[in-house]
Design a protein around this nucleic acid. Structure first.
Lengths: 109, 109
DNA sequence: ATTATTGTTCGTATTTTTGCGAACAATAAT
DNA sequence: ATTATTGTTCGCAAAAATACGAACAATAAT
């Protein structure tokens, strides 16, 4: 029996959907791009970049954190956020696997 | 001036968010994986794979189509769906660029 | 012409998401 | 002790997403 290269299991499919969902908002994409460009930064820095209420920023950060894409640590009285490097790699692989599925395939439409 | 490798413009950020949002549901991930494994198939085949009402399947397909990830053509009285290869490559690149942002970067947290 | 097959669209209900300001909590500074 | 700074959480409202069955449209088959 020949195993396929990708074979996304159900748990992986769900994590993929979970992460994709977190990425599915322009503001959150913007936050991630900003974090990636900064390595790390405080909540206030992120808030300053965005034209929305701080409570809303906090919510978006919470979603990204719950999806595992970022992490935040208290550095009182501030909070330092940054991309969660390990999970970032996990995400990278999941999306790479997904979009690699058509690698060298013939589509008849 | 040195341009960065990635530099996701606003329009690209929005497309990325749009596509990610479409990917952000387990059922739609399942549909895409199925389509990728089949090259193409009819609506009924997709519906048979899923434990949900056909109207719901139709909705999910519409979202994937609106996001540009799949295409559907009438082959009366059936409808043949398949992954939209060009846009699939676009998506592949967008996600690859996003997750490649940390390439060789030092994170201080 | 009727009937069967195949999907989409409509109407509706429920849940989730998004966004805001106010209130709150925790620490730092005075 | 008070006050200032920094973010989170709460409560609410509006919008969007999810899901279903019924009704519909379009073609195929009889």
């Amino acid at each position: 029996m020949e195993t396929t290269k990708h074979m996304l299991h159900v748990a992986e499919q769900e994590m993929l959907a979970r992460m994709a969902k977190a990425l599915g908002h322009p503001t959150r994409i913007e936050i991630l791009l900003f974090l990636a460009s900064q390595n790390s930064c405080f909540f206030g820095d992120i808030h300053d970049e965005l034209p929305i209420a701080k409570s809303t920023v906090s919510q978006h950060l919470k979603e990204l954190k719950d999806a595992g894409l970022i992490q935040g640590e208290i550095e009182a009285p501030k909070v330092r956020y940054c991309i969660h490097k390990e999970n970032w790699e996990v995400a990278r692989k999941l999306f790479s696997d997904l979009f690699g599925l058509l690698e060298g395939k013939e589509m008849n439409c």
